[in-house]
Write a protein that binds this DNA or RNA. Structure first.
Length: 750
DNA sequence: TGGTAGAGGCTTTTT
DNA sequence: GCCTCTACCA
């Protein structure tokens, strides 16, 4: 019998194929499995053509995995299947029928950075309006938010009450005009334009609505109004709309997501069948109890209680740390303990609220030679050198893209400076043409020297354009690098050019591997792929490394052991949310998502002090910690205040100067701190300057020869700190210089 | 035009 | 504490 190992509810969800269906799927309740088996059931049992099935996932990675699973069970079924993110699906539709909404088929996709550049240019043109806006990025976010809420520039102007709002609406209108002029769509447009298309052309809407007999949506709690409109249009003919979500895991309201889409689904689609999945197959009962206890503090929820018939498991361990550095050391300790207990590194995740927290962790992991991968901190495709090359690619494909043309017009330096560019832009604005056309027309108006430099840039540009017509993406990129001597540019301008060269090489190899797999190997197609990849998409869970990422990025993933760090008021919940009860509830859901990523063991850490924008600040333990039921904790959470250290109180937002901090971090003080403050029985061995037995086993001295397991032999250049925090700087024979924590690094004297 | 130094902003989360 | 932008000088 098919689907025999599903539980009753899951089977119901798989087999209920007709009409609107809402599945409330708790964390770890097997929803991915339900989604794939349901598609399998449609294809194999009901003989539905894969071509008639459309599934929305939250990331490209989730889409790929769903396809792979299906392919294993039903070989050949996925080729015609439409599975992807809203954005990717939008692109697919717009490439075919975009002209119905005034979108040319060869449009470019502007990422966040491109959009910000465009906003910046608009603000520069409108200095009087600029004062109504905090920064280009803020305006870009405001515009994005309006787009996600189906607010057009006209509507924004109508609704504007204050002068500031009117100016914003005007800037928004100008932004839209400039996007059209550049033949570009921003991220939001990829969905927006589909909705416009369906509204403007009923025949096109009906074409797609008839085509897709079955529409499935994963992570439904995180859909925003514009995505909802797109779903609605696509399901408008057959009405077989299957959505899966969890109101407790709604964490994208800042992007316009509306949890109401779940809560009110039954009203919008009256004949809805609701199925609840509450049996959890992922975590231990203890972890579920802990997570249930926390989320129960939220008011605005439908209410559900996850349970498992698996084991009780280990208690949750909370570790108090002095600052972010000792927190990182504690994390290493926890990881080492996990590894010696048999957990593989790839089954361990370190999670945090903000990307900025990754730096302190990364520094310590590097020095301890702990292999790790970070998702999302500095995104690969946002690095300067990668963006430069991509900017070349973008304006080669789309010469109307003045923003990207401006980016590279003088990179590497070719003597086309600010003065010339200003003149060219003025001319472009004057004639209402793209920057590249202004360059062609400017020969008479520019000075002779500038004119000839512009001329030779155009020659290079046109040559590359010709090439892109016929050559595959990796060849064009190679040609760009050669023609611009880009490597030389990196070497001459950046001390860390080696890493940058590596990044460029990585881009080239990405283009190569893309060209190997893809049908359309053109530069345009490659750019499209690049624009839509998210960082999680590159996550490699088989690499045997520890994974670090934000909780947002961890959505949908699971690990044997999870360490959630930085549990402090102001950080988690974040300052920006702390005064708004609704926002705090979202922060709580975020913590809930983090907790429920864990299968076997959950660890939580927090620090008494943390460097924030360069300033050392004291913080209070997060309110969420007190919401974890005590019976699920290994030991109760004690207040970390230690009078002798902190002068009586551990107050929030108190600032400590560096000298003050150093003064208090003296061994005696730190010792009394660690005795009183350590919460976990196995206190982090890394509290500052704590005397550690065996701390003297590392007798490194300057000038000593050492061997490191990964980097080979070298000479000690510098020794700092004491005990477990002893750091040595080593110059390796291979030439590189690195810093290590001797306690953790696989290194010994020779 | 290009280099540099100092100021200022930034850190919420992302397709 | 780091990155980006700007102002000023060579």
């Amino acid at each position: 019998m098919p689907h025999a190992d599903l539980n009753e509810r899951q089977r119901e969800a798989v087999l209920a194929t007709e009409g609107p269906i809402l599945v409330i799927a708790g964390a770890g309740s097997g929803k991915t499995r339900v989604l794939t088996e349901r598609i399998g059931h449609l294809i194999a049992d009901l003989r539905v053509s894969p071509y008639e099935i459309l599934a929305f996932t939250f990331t490209n990675k989730a889409a790929r995995e769903m396809k792979e699973r299906l392919e294993r069970v039903h070989p050949g079924s996925t080729e015609m299947l439409w599975v992807g993110t809203f954005h990717a699906t939008g692109v697919r539709i717009l490439r075919r029928h975009g002209d119905g909404a005034g979108v040319r088929r060869d449009f470019s996709i502007y990422d966040t950075d491109d959009s910000t550049g465009l906003v910046k240019a608009i603000l520069a043109r409108n200095p009087n309006d600029a004062r109504f806006v905090k920064s280009p990025r803020v305006l870009r976010d405001i515009i994005s938010r309006m787009k996600n809420d189906l607010v057009t520039p006209e509507l924004a102007a109508e609704r504007a009450v204050s002068n500031g709002e009117q100016r914003v609406a005007a800037l928004y209108a100008e932004y839209e005009r400039d996007l059209r002029k550049a033949n570009a769509l921003d991220f939001d447009d990829l969905i927006n334009k589909v909705v416009e298309l369906f509204a403007a052309r009923d025949d096109v809407r009906e074409l797609y609505a008839r085509h897709f007999r079955y529409v499935l949506v994963d992570e439904f709690q995180d859909t925003n109004p514009i995505q909802m409109a797109m779903i609605d249009g696509l399901a408008s003919y057959h009405g077989n709309l299957f959505v899966v979500g969890d109101d407790d895991q709604s964490i994208y309201s800042w992007r316009g997501a509306r949890v109401e889409h779940i809560l009110e689904f039954e009203e919008v689609y009256p004949a809805t069948k609701v199925i609840r999945l509450e049996q959890n197959y992922r975590s231990t009962q203890t972890i579920l109890d802990a997570a249930n206890g926390v989320i129960a503090h939220n008011q605005g929820r439908k209410g559900k209680n996850l349970w498992t018939d698996g084991g009780v498991g280990d208690k949750v361990r909370v570790t108090a740390c002095l600052d972010e550095e000792s927190e990182a050391l504690s994390v290493i300790d926890l990881v080492k303990r996990e590894v010696s207990a048999g957990t593989s590194l790839k089954q361990i995740a370190i999670l945090y609220r903000t990307n900025a927290q990754s730096r302190a962790l990364e520094d310590v992991f590097k020095m301890g030679s702990m292999p790790y991968q970070i998702i999302g901190a500095v995104r690969f495709y946002e690095r300067t050198e990668v963006r430069d090359i991509l900017a070349y690619c973008k304006c080669i494909v789309n010469p109307a893209d003045s923003i990207n043309l401006k980016r590279i017009i003088n990179v590497p330096r070719r003597g086309i400076g600010k003065t010339t560019i200003d003149q060219l832009e003025a001319l472009a604005a004057d004639r209402g043409v793209a920057l590249v056309d202004a360059m062609r027309e400017a020969q008479s108006t520019l000075g002779a020297a500038a004119a000839s430099r512009v001329q030779s840039f155009l020659a290079l540009f046109d040559e590359l354009r010709r090439m892109a017509d016929t050559e595959v993406a990796p060849h064009v990129i190679d040609a760009i690098l050669k023609a611009t001597q880009y490597h030389k540019h990196l070497e001459e301008n950046y001390p860390d050019f080696e890493a940058r060269v590596e990044n460029v090489d990585e881009l080239v190899s990405a283009a190569h591997s893309y060209a190997e797999g893809a049908e359309d190997k053109s530069l345009r197609a490659f750019l499209e792929e690049v624009a839509l990849v998210a960082d999680v998409d590159t996550l490699d869970l088989e690499s045997g490394q520890l994974t670090l990422m934000t909780i947002h990025n961890a959505k949908g993933l699971e690990f044997d052991a999870v360490i959630v760090t930085g549990m402090e008021e102001g950080l988690f919940p974040h300052y920006n949310s702390i005064d708004d009860p609704t926002a705090v509830e979202e922060e709580r859901r975020l913590f809930y998502v983090g907790m429920t990523r864990a299968r076997q063991r959950l660890y939580v850490t927090f620090a008494a002090m943390r460097r924030r924008m360069g300033m050392m600040e004291g913080g209070m333990p997060s309110r969420f910690l007190n919401e974890i039921p005590e019976r699920t904790l290994e030991s109760p959470i004690e207040p970390v205040a230690s009078p002798s250290v902190y002068g009586g109180a551990w107050s929030p937002r108190r600032e400590y100067s560096r000298s003050l901090r150093d003064e208090y971090a003296q061994p005696e003080a730190a010792d009394s701190y660690s005795q009183e403050a350590s919460v976990a029985p196995s206190r982090p061995t890394a509290l500052p300057a704590a005397e550690v037995s065996g701390g003297s086993e590392h007798n490194y001295e300057v000038g000593m020869r050492i061997r490191h397991d990964r980097f080979g032999a070298g000479i000690v250049r510098k020794v700092e700190g004491r005990g477990e925090q002893t750091r040595v700087t080593v110059i390796f024979d291979a030439g590189s210089e690195r810093k290590f924590l001797v306690h953790y690094a696989p290194m010994r004297p020779l």
